[in-house]
Write a protein that binds this DNA or RNA. Structure first.
Lengths: 149, 149
DNA sequence: GTACATGCAAATTGTTTGCAAGTAT
DNA sequence: ATACTTGCAAACAATTTGCATGTAC
């Protein structure tokens, strides 16, 4: 699943600017989930003149072309490299967002069971505890548990 | 599934003010999905002194108590009366948000297939075409379709 | 050469905060 | 009586806009 960002952008008539290339480099580093500000802070290191407005502009273009995906949480927009259907789990312990795979066909079947709407773009967002934090919590509860007599 | 809003609020230590009662009345009218501003505009008719800030305050309290649910779309927070898991479908034709039932157990199973995280609160948001608009589109495509010879 | 992108500053939108005055319990 | 709520204005955060300048094609 190696995405050709440049080709996708050109295909849609977008020009390839240094700023857009910098965003592509950022994406290739494989950050799971990021905000416009995350991208801005990183790119400013190499292109100090870039502005947040430009980053928003670029991310919108990338999302239009569907080489990235976006979703809203608590008033801020998160972007992600993964465009195939999956769940995003925001861990209430560590605060990170992690991907959870889900069977797209089966999920669509569940929806179709109850409605004959057209389901074009599905966003599945979950709050909970990620596997790592869950494991840590288990360890702590073991070590702090009072000894039974 | 008749919710006793007043009892739920009292239970959690919230006071029953005229403003909160007005929001309860609003909820009882059964609007599917609404923003803070929707509620504000409506309640201002009976309580002209109410402010948006108060409406936000109240809706947050109601969401804390889980007698309403909230989710974010394109930078605005939507609220809904339905707190049981379901999908929200935003129709790209009419712009409305409609509920789509989904089997909670089966959805959880799909998630658990791929991760042993704790899934506490699931938000399922879909963009697409609602059943009504889909039906209309079908009718139009029939009446405007060029005749084959 | 031209249409599109960038950088900048200012505007906008949605939401939250601080605080004095009011009110439910 | 007291702690919680309201109303108001101001603050905030995230995002968008307008426009002159710059640049990919």
């Amino acid at each position: 699943m190696v995405k050709d960002y440049v080709a996708m952008l050109k295909e849609a008539g977008y020009k390839i600017t240094p700023q857009r290339l910098a965003v592509i480099e950022y994406l290739k580093k494989g950050p799971g989930h990021f905000t416009a500000n995350d991208v801005y802070k990183e790119i400013k290191k190499t292109i100090p003149t870039i502005t947040l407005a430009t980053v928003y502009n670029i991310l919108k273009a990338f999302a239009d072309v569907r080489c990235i995906n976006s979703f809203d949480v608590d008033g801020t927009t998160w972007f992600e490299n993964e465009v195939e259907l999956h769940a995003n789990l925001m861990c209430k312990v560590c605060g990170n967002i992690v991907d959870v795979k889900i069977d797209k066909g089966k999920l669509l079947d569940l929806l179709k069971e109850n409605s004959d709407a057209d389901f074009e773009n599905i966003t599945l967002f979950v709050r909970g505890v990620c596997p790592e934090c869950k494991a840590k919590e288990r360890m702590e509860s073991v070590s702090t548990k009072p000894v039974m007599h």
